[in-house]
Each structure stands twice: as C-alpha cells, then as structure tokens.
Amino acid sequence: MSTQVTTGLQVRRSVQLTIDDQSVTVAEGETILSACRTMGKEIPTLCYGDTITPKNACRVCMVEVEGSRVLVPSCSRKVEPGMVVRTDTERTDHSRKLVLELLGSSVDLSLTKNVARWNTEYGSEPTRFGKPAAPTNHRDEATTGHHHVADGSSVSNVLQPVKIDNELYIRDYSKCIMCYQCVDACGEQWQNTFAIGVAGRGFDIRISTEFNVDLTDSACVYCGNCIQVCPTGALMFTSEHNMRDAGTWKEEEQTQTDTICPYCGVGCALTLHVQDNEIVKVSSPSDHSVTHGNLCIKGRFGFQHVQNRAE
C-alpha cells in the first residue's frame, strides 16, 4: 500500500532572516508577513486576504528592510536570506498611523475589524484633517484627471448612498478602502466573470460595473465571492444589511457550522452563520481545497428552502 501523499509537492528550501533582532527560519517563498505571524508578531493588514494575491495597496503593513530606501509591504515581499527586518520603528509606526488616518478620514471603517484598536495603538486621529464633506452621489460621474480644486474648508471622502439593486446583496461603497479583492475575486483570480472592475483614477477610483449599470444589467452571477473577500463590510448579504438596519444583527450570538453544499456534485464547503435557528449568511472556508472560499449563487444564497416555513 502506498504512503505517497498528494502529487506536486516540492521540497522548499528554508530561509533565515532577522526580524526585530530575532533570527527566524521560514520556507522559501514565504512573505515577511507570514514570517512575522509564525513568530506571533501582529502586523496590521487591511487589503490583505488569504485567498487573493496581495495587492499591497493599503500600505498599513509596511516594515523597514535594511538596504531599502523606502518601507516595504510585508504582505507581499518575499523573505530573502539574511534579510534584516524591523517591524516597529518610528518610521513604520508613523506610516501605519498616517495610513489609518488617511483611510479613516475618507472611508467609513466602522465595520472593519481591528481598526479601533489599531487607532489607539498607533495614536491615529482621523478627524484631525478637518470637517468631513457631505456625502455625494456623484462619485460615479467623476471626470478622469480633473477635480474641483479643494478650498480646504472640508475633508473629501467617499461617503455616498448604499447601492441596492438586487435581492441578494448590497454595495455600500462608503465603506470601500479599494483593496481590489472583490475585483480580483470576480476576475481572473477566481470567478472570471469580470462583472466589476476598477474605474476612474486617483481619489475618484472606484469599483464599478461598466458605465455604473446596476448589477442586474451587468455580468454579475451572484456568486458572492466578492462578499466573501470584502474586509470592510462594503459588500454584504441583504439579509445582514437589513438586520443591521433593524438592529437585530447579533454576531456574538451567532454560530458558525461547516458543512457541504446540497446542490451539485462538486462538494463545496459551506460555513453556515446561524442566529436564532435561522441561516443568516453563508461563507466558505478559505483554506478548503475544493472552494478556496468561493461558491456559486446556489451555495451562497440558495439556503432559504430550509427556512421558508409556514407561520
């Protein structure tokens, strides 16, 4: 009987480096972030997700690497032998503080995990840039390369009305930090539907369907893989959105149970989020070899048949 494990396993060499004066050995191909995590060091991350190639767009995970003129994104920089890394210097702390302030002053981070704690830890005060400008519903009409010159009386932000154009999920781009994960999940990295892209440029950059059409007119197939990767609550099940609006969303009372999708024979892993014996949301474990966190419309939203109960 064979004892061979799965195919394609390659032997990876190990790499020794120094992080905050401690020597650490990790496998070749690991990132500075993963090396830090194996040491039990917390590096804040916002745009990083474990199923998507790091975009290193948020720049909150920056560390100092000896020999590098600028700071280095730990989420994507691969370890190198002899690398000397510092994760908690004045420069890294300043950088994190400012990134949290820049995002906090322009985006609604109320549902982004850990932000309140990090704000305290790094002394971030997002309000110190000034009075926030009023929400606008014109962000989708921006002219590339042009803006109304700021007069400095208020602080620009991305606050805007919630987009509700279908029964299954909502898009609240006031909460969007432009991590690109939804676009990558919808696009080449997973779903390959490309219903949404990044449009515009600079501060007018936004997640958009072509010409900002409603999802129902777009290529969207409602797999919800964008919701799965969204780190800020900008993309959300309608069920969760409505419960939050009604004040009945109680995450601390919810259970999460892993099971398998009841539809086709692929066998996708589901995590059922249950509150008061009701499935209120479905996610998928990101480390599962079948799904990698991805589902289709049936797996993601097709759970209602077990709870359309006669009153």
């Binding site: 299954l168 197939v221 539809y263 049936k298 048949h305």
Partner: peptide
C-alpha cells in the same frame, strides 16, 4: 446556473 433539478431547493430563494 441559479436553478437545480426540479427546483425543490433552488425555488426557495430569489435569484436576480
């Protein structure tokens, strides 16, 4: 894509 067999299960949710 959004339906399944005789619709006993998939008929339970609203699909755009």
């Amino acid at each position: 894509l959004d339906s399944y067999n005789t619709g006993v299960q998939s008929g339970g949710f609203q699909s755009p």
